[in-house]
Computed example of a mutant assay.
Amino acid sequence: MPGKLSPRADAHIHLFQHGFSGTKAAGAELTTYIELRERYAIDEALVVGYEGDTRFAGNNDYVLELAATHPWIRPTLFLDPMRPPSPEQIESDRAQGAVGYSIYLGSDPELAGLIPTKTWDALSRARCILSVNAAPEAVAGADTHLRDASGAFILLSHLGLPGNLAGAPVLETQRRIAPIVRLADAPHVSVKLSGLYATDPDFPHTAAIQAAQVLIEAYGPARMLWGSDYAPGLSAVSDSELFALPDIIRDELSESDCALVLGGSLRSILQETLA
């Protein structure tokens, strides 16, 4: 790759002991990311914990163990809405190195309501990063909870997971992301420019870029965080595509705004949550 890349921070990766496929040698997925991290100048990475499948049981402990010896790893632990952590557990997790939690709401508008108010309050008091994987209907259902957790840093993954919009009319794209746009007036909420292949599988993900342009206008570049979605994304695109910020988006941003999207904003959030 020609030229020296400026350091970036990756707002969305997964690390599983035996890989996303569950078939790799222990630690092989980490080894590959370390190689890619050097290639693409990644200096920090937000690890999105996931235990929503039995084959990924123990992922929280695994990423905490990795973070203890790899200071560039910033773990968010999987939070099961059916079994939310107590305020004491949140305090303990933070003391062990977790910067926050990953919450998977799917498309269920009721799921966020299963998390008690005392838990949302504790997450907010602890200044947690909350990586939220939720489709627009689930974001709409969680709107009040996400707004009220104003001490936390809410990061909506994958453009808010609007679904496959390849070939969709502009009005349909706008309709799908409307619940995400509505949250833009909550200053502690940001959106991840990650998983673009899920919105449009063909690089450079034109339909995803169209959605991203609307969200950049609503949130501003400082609240749009680039993420690779390693390693699941490698089943859909090449590593050069996965780690790219599409030129159409890059060309519309100033140099300073691009630096925010590619890591500056995530670093600022990490500094605040670790203070």
Score class of each variant (00 low, 15 high):
residue 3 G to W: 03
residue 5 L to A: 09
residue 6 S to A: 15
residue 7 P to F: 02
residue 11 A to H: 04
residue 16 F to M: 15
residue 18 H to G: 05
residue 19 G to N: 07
residue 22 G to S: 08
residue 23 T to P: 07
residue 23 T to E: 07
residue 25 A to C: 12
residue 25 A to I: 07
residue 26 A to K: 12
residue 27 G to R: 02
residue 32 T to E: 15
residue 34 I to P: 06
residue 34 I to N: 09
residue 35 E to A: 13
residue 37 R to A: 13
residue 43 D to H: 11
residue 52 G to H: 03
residue 52 G to P: 10
residue 54 T to S: 15
residue 54 T to L: 06
residue 54 T to W: 10
residue 54 T to M: 11
residue 56 F to H: 13
residue 63 V to Y: 08
residue 63 V to D: 11
residue 63 V to H: 09
residue 65 E to M: 09
residue 69 T to E: 12
residue 71 P to E: 11
residue 73 I to N: 05
residue 73 I to Q: 11
residue 83 R to Y: 05
residue 85 P to K: 08
residue 86 S to H: 05
residue 87 P to V: 04
residue 87 P to E: 10
residue 88 E to F: 06
residue 93 D to F: 13
residue 95 A to F: 06
residue 96 Q to D: 11
residue 97 G to C: 06
residue 98 A to W: 04
residue 101 Y to D: 00
residue 101 Y to A: 01
residue 102 S to W: 04
residue 104 Y to T: 11
residue 107 S to G: 11
residue 107 S to I: 10
residue 108 D to C: 13
residue 111 L to C: 08
residue 112 A to E: 00
residue 118 K to I: 12
residue 123 L to W: 02
residue 125 R to I: 12
residue 125 R to A: 13
residue 128 C to Y: 03
residue 130 L to S: 10
residue 131 S to G: 14
residue 133 N to K: 03
residue 133 N to Y: 15
residue 134 A to F: 04
residue 138 A to C: 10
residue 141 G to R: 04
residue 144 T to I: 13
residue 144 T to H: 14
residue 145 H to Q: 02
residue 149 A to T: 10
residue 151 G to H: 10
residue 153 F to C: 14
residue 158 H to G: 06
residue 159 L to P: 01
residue 159 L to E: 07
residue 161 L to W: 07
residue 161 L to V: 09
residue 161 L to A: 08
residue 164 N to I: 00
residue 164 N to Y: 07
residue 164 N to T: 03
residue 166 A to T: 10
residue 166 A to F: 00
residue 168 A to Q: 08
residue 169 P to F: 05
residue 169 P to H: 11
residue 172 E to Q: 14
residue 174 Q to F: 12
residue 176 R to V: 12
residue 178 A to N: 15
residue 180 I to Y: 12
residue 183 L to D: 08
residue 185 D to C: 11
residue 187 P to V: 06
residue 189 V to D: 12
residue 190 S to H: 01
residue 194 S to L: 02
residue 196 L to F: 07
residue 198 A to T: 07
residue 200 D to R: 00
residue 202 D to T: 13
residue 203 F to M: 01
residue 204 P to K: 03
residue 205 H to E: 04
residue 205 H to K: 00
residue 206 T to D: 05
residue 210 Q to L: 00
residue 210 Q to I: 01
residue 212 A to E: 08
residue 212 A to K: 04
residue 213 Q to R: 07
residue 219 Y to C: 09
residue 219 Y to H: 01
residue 225 L to P: 09
residue 227 G to V: 09
residue 227 G to Y: 01
residue 236 A to K: 10
residue 236 A to W: 10
residue 237 V to L: 05
residue 237 V to H: 08
residue 242 L to N: 09
residue 245 L to M: 11
residue 247 D to S: 14
residue 249 I to D: 01
residue 250 R to F: 04
residue 251 D to S: 15
residue 253 L to V: 10
residue 253 L to I: 08
residue 258 C to I: 12
residue 260 L to I: 06
residue 260 L to W: 12
residue 269 I to C: 08
residue 270 L to C: 03
